[in-house]
Every structure is written in structure tokens, then in C-alpha cells.
Design a protein around this nucleic acid. Structure first.
Length: 650
RNA sequence: GCUGCUGUAGCUCAGUGGUAGAGCACUCCCUUGGUAAGGGAGAGGUCCAGGGUUCGAGUCCCUGCAGCAGCACCA
């Protein structure tokens, strides 16, 4: 006699076991029609699931968040059926729903191409129109394995074999077709609807392991209705316009070319942006009691052997030799990290506990040989500069130093317009240096530090640095990709390997702990994200060209030059536009170039010594004297850390 | 690195095995104008590189390099 409690706390009694379909029908015809699935005591179930005893039941309709995931999962099954119908001999593997859609990995000798999409989509619509019911069956394990093997579905058989013995093997049928699946599913293929679209093909390793075969993956998106789909596609288009590679080209910020794959040619405007950010960071670090240093680019192999990089990291290092007989045995490496060099400075002379925590900062240019497929614009490159620093401190100082660092990072991110970021906690990786005890200590210390700093993080198991666990501060780009920017790593290993010591209060020698930390991560990556975040329309203090001074007539040129010079003297970045073009044209061009302020000088302004300021891409304008214009813009262009603090006026 | 796609003027891109194209940008000329593209002329090419097929290759084939998407990698 199950008593079913509904979300509104009403209770319904039934005789014997009932399915969701029955319960929904008992509640009303509207719900019977709308219900796609249900949640029984918090577990998502098919409507056909038999409820044996008392339970809390909530029905899932198309409006519920769970529905979107089910639409996508069901669409994946439909895709798989369509592909197997069209391309016999293709093996199915897995097809989960993901953010914004789903994918399905197929094993097929010939990979799919986008030209196959219309055909596959048409077949999918056919299957959806058939509206075959999803029917769940439970099979004995051996029978399931034998069935799929007999069908030549090696991958499915392998999946079942690897399921734990206790796991129920469930099969979902949709008409003639069936698939191994945990479920649950909606009522039938018709519930998928029409708002889906195949997006791209890609290779993907079986089980995500590069030693395995490469499968052919089809990515697709699916939504509740056409309106949602259209909105998503529009959003993708908009995101593409923010791509830093595109904007970098349009604004003339930088370029890349194959003779220096993975290294950036910064053009004047891009470099202006870079140095603005660097100057800001330098002031921030100075204020936070860091000391800036500069260490060598090329360092002898001996140091990398001592630090452990030669053993753990060599494949990613650029090695340099000299074509000279007397130097033939010398092997140098371009530094992939700054830490060993910073320890050399720490070790130069005997340190006292009084000097700790010592914060050693460097805008360190590093080179890493990244796999060719990993390179991405300026976000993943082979030559980059970190806003790196190492905090040498005692074990006791770790929590406070961590808290201080997180506060500094958050303040910096805020100044750049990032109010939200994610934090990941990465613990010991397989390939690591140092004892288990030191890892235990480092991980516990970092967790404690997070608790103290009030940092909420997600666990990221096995992804730590080889010398210590790390916090990763993650920002998202325009296309929705996540990038690690800031980081904080606790390291007991390197001080040990490179024999860093300080003299403690007790007069004995002690081992310092090193905190590796970066706020931006690399300038290159951070600038890429910054470009995408602002779509190239930077706040005034960051804009590479802050003001364009444009003339209406040639006669205005002498005064326009004066105006430009006055702006420049006030520290603004100015472009003087004296071209033989109409003002209309100049307005358009500077909007395209994403210049934030246009100063227009016509005959009238030249005579009166005034300036018309227009905020691009807006249309409003104000007329100011030159002195007012300079004062206004100079104040507004001050970096956030240099702006006078607002004082409440009585 | 792996799978697939792409590589033509500074940029965005057409181009059917038979004389290398357009728009924008650039240079010059006309025009001196009042806030979202004024008009005309000109110049500009290692069709990514190397090999092959062919009477003939930007076009077809192979190899390499680079870029793009995804996967793997990411101290």
C-alpha cells in the first residue's frame, strides 16, 4: 500500500506497486501528458519504474532543469541509432550529456565529416518521429557480454566487463535498437523534440587514454525548443567575435608566425597593454612587500638535475648547446620555471628567521616545449612571462601567507573586472618528488590555509605539481574554456633538494617552506582572457589607445597637435588622426579600433581652444576647454590602485 | 603528440587541370567636410614549403611545416 508524497506534501494512497505513469495519471491528465520522468526519494527514475513502498515523488516535466539533461542523453541514443542505421559496422561506445549538449563516440575506420551531418540529422528526425518507447530491461551480465560480443560491439562488451559485479546491467530499447545504459530515459524518442543540431566532429581516445584507439566523436547541442537553440547558437556567434586571436588582429595588438610557433610578436599597442598590466602588478607587489629580482634565462643542466626538473620535466625543456669545441660537454636549458633560480638567491648568504617570510618576485620569462596540439593563440604558448614569486617562510607561516595571497589575488582580479573565479585544489600526482610525509604535511597545511582564508574549492585529484599540492585559480574565456591563471603551491621538496636553510631563533639551521605563487599566471594567458572578457573594449586605464584626436578640417590640425601633445604630457596614450577623411569616417574607424574616447577638433574648437569629447561607441558629446579635458581624462585613466580613495563629503 | 579540417594580396575571402581575382586596407589625385564608411586612379602575389602525376598544377597525389576544432598533455 504505497503512500506517495508529492512536493506539495499531499499524499496519495495506492494499492500495491505503482508506476510513475499510473501516479501521474491519477493526479491529472495534464501531468500525465507533461511528465517525462520522476524523482523517487531523490533518485531520478523512468516513469515505468515500479514504486513498491512509501515514497516521495516529484515529476519531471520539460520545464525542469533535469529535463534538459535527459533530452540530451536521449538525443545521444537517437544519434547512435541513426549512425548505426546509416553506417553499418560502426561500433557504439559512450554518449553522455555535457554542458550545452552531448556527444557520442563511435568506432569506425573512416571518421565522420560535417558533410555527413545533414544525412544523420534527417535520420534522427525520422527516429524521433517514430516515437518508439524507451523500454528498460535488466540482463544477466554474461548474457549481455555475449550479446554485444556477438554483435561485434567490442567496446560495449568491455564496458560491461569492467562494471562492478554488484552493478545491475540495464539495457534500453527504442524500437528495434538497443543500448547498454544506466538510464533513466524519457518516455520515448519523440520526447527529444526538434531543437538539436550536430556541431562538430573530433577525435577522442577510448576511455580518455592516449594509448588507446582514437574514436570518432560527434558533438551536438540540444535544447527544449527552437527558441533556446537559436539563443544558444547566437551566443556562440557572439562569443566568436570576442576571440582574442581575432581581436588581437583587428586591433593590431600582436601576431604569431610559424618561424616562432608558440611565441608572440607584440606590436606597439599590444605591448602598451602588456606594460600597463605589468606596471600595475609591480606596484601591487611592491605594496604587498615583495622584492623583485631577475634571474638567468639559460641555466646549466647541473642546476636542473639538482632541482629534479631534469628527471621529471626534461621532455618539456628547450635545451641549448654551443657550437664550440671547448664547450662541447656543456648543456644549458632555457628555464621552464623560476623557482630553482630564486632558491639560488635565497641561498646566497646565510638567512635568518628574521627575514621570513621573504617574498621574492620576478616577471620571469619561461620557455616550455608544449605539444603542438596544445598551442592556442596567446593563451597556451611556448614562451611566456609569469608574474611569479616565491615566499620563503616557516611552516607556521603558511596559513597566514596563503590568506594574504588569496586576498591580494581577489583584489587584483576585481580591478581587472573579474568578480568571480573558481578555485581547484590539486593534490599529489603520480609522478612526484618528495616523501609521503612531506606530501601529507603540505596537503594538510594548504587545506588548513584555505579554511582560514575562507576559500571554497573543488577537489582536483592527482593534478598537483611534482613538488607540491596546488590551488588553481581558474578564469573562463569567451568560448567557455577554463584556464588556470593564478596558482599557489606549497613546496617542501625544492628547499630540501636545493638545500635552502635559515638560522632559527634557536640558533639551529632549519628548512624553509616555499610557496610558489602567481596571480595572473602568465601575462600572455591573462591578457588573452582580459581581451575576451572586455571584447577589446577596455576600461580607460587599460586601453592601448586611450584617446583619438580627430580633425574636421585641415585648418584645425595645428591645434589638434597641441591637444594631442597635452594629452600625451598627461600620460595618456593618444592617436592623432589628421587624415583627409570626413569626420563620419573617422568616428567609424575609431569605433572599430575600440578607442574609448574621441576628441574632435573643428574650426570652432581650434578658434576657441576647446575640445569635443565623445565616448565611443556612444553618441553623446561634451565640449570642454583643453585644460578640463586633460584633467578629466587623466583622472579617469588612473589605474585602480592609483585612484584617490573616495572620501564621503558631509 | 593523435584524429579531422584548413593554408591564395597587409586583412576577409572567391577561384571549374589551361593568362592569379574581389572587397577592405595601402599610395597618389580630387574633395575641406561638424559626428556611424565622399569620389577617382594606382600599386601590391614564392597561391605555406618540398617532391610527384601531367603537354600544362593555386587546383590532383605524397611528405613536411603552420593554423583551426576536439582528444591527450598542461610543473
Amino acid at each position: 500500500m504505497p503512500a506517495i508524497t508529492l512536493p506539495d506534501q499531499s499524499v496519495r494512497q495506492f494499492d500495491g506497486a505503482v508506476t510513475g505513469t499510473t501516479v501521474a495519471a491519477a493526479i491529472g491528465p495534464g501531468l500525465a501528458k507533461a511528465a517525462l520522468a520522476m524523482q523517487v526519494d531523490g533518485q531520478l527514475r523512468d516513469l515505468s519504474f515500479a514504486i513498491e513502498g512509501d515514497a516521495k515523488v516529484r515529476f519531471i516535466t520539460r520545464k525542469d532543469p533535469e529535463a534538459l539533461e535527459m533530452i540530451r542523453h536521449d538525443a545521444a541514443h537517437v544519434l547512435a541509432e541513426a549512425v548505426q542505421e546509416l553506417f553499418p559496422g560502426t561500433q557504439v561506445t559512450i554518449g553522455p550529456s555535457i554542458e550545452n549538449g552531448f556527444y557520442y563516440d563511435f568506432a569506425r575506420n573512416e571518421p565522420f565529416t560535417p558533410e555527413d551531418f545533414p544525412k544523420i540529422e534527417a535520420k534522427m528526425r525520422e527516429i524521433i518521429a517514430r516515437n518508439a518507447a524507451f523500454v528498460r530491461e535488466e540482463w544477466p551480465r554474461d548474457q549481455a557480454i555475449a550479446f554485444f560480443e556477438e554483435k561485434g560491439e567490442r567496446y560495449k562488451a568491455e564496458l560491461i566487463r569492467d562494471l562492478p559485479e554488484t552493478e545491475v546491467i540495464s539495457i534500453y530499447r527504442q524500437g528495434e535498437w538497443l543500448d547498454l545504459c544506466r538510464g533513466p530515459h524519457m518516455r520515448g524518442t519523440g520526447d527529444v523534440g526538434a531543437a538539436f543540431k550536430l556541431m562538430k566532429v573530433a577525435g577522442a581516445y577510448w576511455r580518455g587514454d592516449h594509448r588507446n584507439a582514437m574514436l570518432s566523436r560527434i558533438y551536438a547541442t540540444a535544447w527544449r525548443d527552437q527558441k533556446e537553440l537559436d539563443a544558444y547558437l547566437l551566443q556562440l556567434e557572439e562569443a566568436e567575435k570576442r576571440d582574442h586571436r581575432k581581436i588581437g588582429k583587428e586591433m593590431g595588438l600582436f601576431h604569431l608566425q610559424e618561424e616562432a610557433a608558440g611565441s608572440i610578436f607584440w606590436h606597439p599597442k599590444g605591448w602598451r597593454l602588456y606594460t600597463t598590466v605589468q606596471d600595475y602588478m609591480r606596484r601591487r607587489l611592491d605594496a604587498a612587500d615583495y622584492q623583485e629580482v631577475k634571474t638567468p634565462q639559460l641555466v646549466d643542466r647541473k642546476l636542473w638535475e639538482a632541482s629534479g626538473h631534469w628527471e621529471k620535466y626534461r621532455e618539456h625543456m628547450f635545451i641549448a648547446t654551443v657550437d664550440d669545441e671547448s664547450e662541447k660537454d656543456r648543456m644549458l636549458a632555457l628555464k621552464p620555471m623560476n623557482c630553482p633560480c630564486h632558491v639560488q638567491i635565497f641561498n646566497h648568504g646565510l638567512r635568518s628567521y628574521r627575514e621570513l617570510p621573504m617574498r621574492m618576485a620576478e616577471f620571469g620569462a619561461c620557455h616550455r616545449f608544449e605539444p603542438s596540439g596544445a598551442l592556442h593563440g596567446i593563451m597556451r604558448v611556448r614562451a611566456f612571462t609569469q608574474d611569479d614569486a616565491h615566499i620563503f617562510c616557516t611552516e607556521d607561516q603558511v596559513p597566514a601567507q596563503t590568506a594574504e595571497f588569496v586576498a591580494l589575488l581577489a583584489a587584483v582580479y576585481r580591478d581587472f573586472g573579474f568578480n568571480e573565479f573558481r578555485v581547484k585544489f590539486s593534490d599529489r600526482p603520480e609522478k612526484r618528488a618528495g616523501s609521503e610525509e612531506s606530501w601529507d604535511k603540505a596537503e594538510a597545511g594548504l587545506k588548513e590555509a584555505c579554511r582560514l582564508a575562507g576559500v571554497e574549492y573543488e577537489l582536483n585529484p592527482g593534478e598537483g605539481a611534482f613538488y607540491g599540492p596546488k590551488l588553481e585559480f581558474v578564469l573562463r574565456d569567451a568560448i567557455g574554456r577554463d584556464w588556470q591563471c593564478g596558482t599557489l603551491q606549497v613546496d617542501y621538496v625544492l628547499p630540501e633538494r636545493l638545500d635552502a636553510v635559515y638560522v632559527g631563533e634557536d640558533g639551529n639551521r632549519h628548512r624553509p617552506v616555499m610557496l610558489h605563487r602567481a596571480i595572473l599566471g602568465s601575462f600572455e594567458r591573462f591578457l588573452g582572457i582580459l581581451i575576451e572578457e572586455h571584447a577589446g573594449r577596455f576600461p580607460l586605464w587599460l586601453a592601448p589607445v586611450q584617446v583619438a584626436v580627430a580633425t574636421i578640417v585641415d585648418e584645425a590640425a595645428p591645434f589638434a597637435k597641441e591637444v594631442a601633445a597635452a594629452f600625451r604630457k598627461a600620460g595618456l596614450s593618444v592617436e592623432l588622426d589628421l587624415r583627409n577623411e570626413k569626420i563620419n569616417r573617422k568616428v567609424v574607424d575609431h569605433i572599430e579600433q575600440r578607442v574609448p574616447v574621441l576628441a574632435v577638433i573643428g574650426r570652432r574648437e581650434a578658434e576657441e581652444g576647446k575640445v569635443v569629447l565623445r565616448r565611443l561607441p556612444g553618441r553623446e558629446q561634451v565640449t570642454l576647454t583643453l585644460a578640463e579635458a586633460v584633467a578629466t581624462l587623466a583622472a579617469e585613466a588612473a589605474a585602480p590602485d592609483l585612484k584617490p580613495v573616495d572620501v564621503a563629503v558631509a
